[in-house]
């Protein structure tokens, strides 16, 4: 027990105390800053963290969480000190954290709706790209092994920034949703196709020989041998495609959308509502991080056979 208490002597907890101390400083912004929101937020996660640190046995995980919290506290402290606690930054451009939370809670239903709409569009375009690019890449990669020029075609199309497809997408598919799905599809298709072909191309010849001597059938060769053998590279392509998809969809929503977080940010920027812009930026950051985290978990699970 004393060991556990000793371990609480760390920077994260020190930063928590600093945070509490600076709450004693007076507010310098003229408008209400809802300071209480950020205090409740920080105290709540600190309590959860303390409880977790006393019951968990996973030292490594705790360490990671502690470091992330420390960085979060540091950012919040800096944010408060630069804004409402000093009045150093412009009040209209840089809202205090408390008011951002207040706005977030107020807009929550709209935000959830926006995220949902964005994610469904991405899911649709992305899944479409995966189920077409991977089989095609496996087949094409197989032929490249015997010398073919298809990889140059893929490299050419892959090198075009996918945002240039938007005019065509809009002309051919007037509904914003359909056009967005198409652009996401076009953006993720090429990296996944290229990675799949490269993955197949790089399969150890001995693995294929071993499969051949087992008299593996054509389909089984494709899906039980080549697909898993190329999977490490395929997943790299998928991760690249996912990253591009978010960038593209947010841009598309800002240009021509009526839904999604990109639209939310663009809409309020027209009114100079910087509190909501900050809300939108933070929400987008959290959503993309969480999805990347899930993707990495899935990737680690699928490749658990590697050392």
């Amino acid at each position: 027990m004393t060991e556990k208490i000793k371990k609480q002597l760390n920077i994260t907890n020190a930063l928590f105390l600093v945070f509490l101390l600076i709450q004693l400083l007076p507010e310098r912004y003229s408008k209400e800053t809802y300071e209480i929101n950020i205090i409740i937020f920080v105290v709540t996660i600190q309590v959860i963290y303390l409880i977790f640190s006393f019951i968990t046995k996973k030292e490594k995980k705790l360490e990671t969480i502690r470091d992330i919290l420390g960085i979060t506290y540091f950012i919040i402290i800096a944010w408060q000190l630069m804004t409402s606690k000093s009045g150093f930054l412009n009040e209209l451009l840089f809202p205090a954290p408390g008011i951002v939370i207040q706005q977030f809670i107020h807009d929550l239903p709209r935000i959830i709706e926006g995220i949902q709409s964005s994610l469904l569009i991405i899911l649709e375009g992305y899944v479409l790209a995966i189920i077409t690019a991977i089989p095609l890449g496996l087949a094409a990669g197989w032929h490249i092994r015997f010398g073919n020029s298809f990889q140059y075609v893929s490299k050419f199309f892959g090198s075009i920034p996918p945002i240039v497809y938007i005019p065509y997408a809009i002309a051919l598919l007037p509904a914003f949703r359909d056009a967005s799905v198409f652009v996401i599809f076009a953006a993720s298709f090429w990296p996944i196709l290229g990675a799949t072909m490269a993955g197949v191309f790089n399969i150890e010849k001995k693995i294929l020989d071993s499969a051949k001597t087992l008299n593996v059938g054509r389909l089984s060769m494709l899906f039980h041998v080549m697909l898993p053998a190329a999977l490490p590279e395929i997943l790299m392509g998928c991760s690249q495609g996912l990253g591009i998809s978010f960038i593209l969809l947010t841009s598309a929503e800002m240009i021509g959308g009526k839904t999604g977080m990109g639209y939310y940010i663009k809409y309020y920027s027209d009114f100079g509502d910087f509190t909501r812009i900050v809300v939108g930026i933070i929400v987008l950051g959290i959503v993309v991080s969480v999805i990347t985290l899930f993707f990495n978990k899935l990737q680690r699970y699928l490749l658990r056979w590697r050392q």
């Binding site: 150890e204 001995k206 693995i207 020989d209 071993s210 499969a211 001597t213 087992l214 008299n215 593996v216 059938g217 089984s220 039980h224 041998v225 898993p228 053998a229 999977l231 056979w305 590697r306």
Partner: peptide, 29 residues
Amino acid sequence: GDDRAVVFQHYSLFPWMTTRANVVYGIKQ
């Protein structure tokens, strides 16, 4: 042909299949 089975120096097994799955996959063929 399935009248012959081969053991190589390396890479006879598929690294993404467990030991049992490797043997099962062989028998299935």
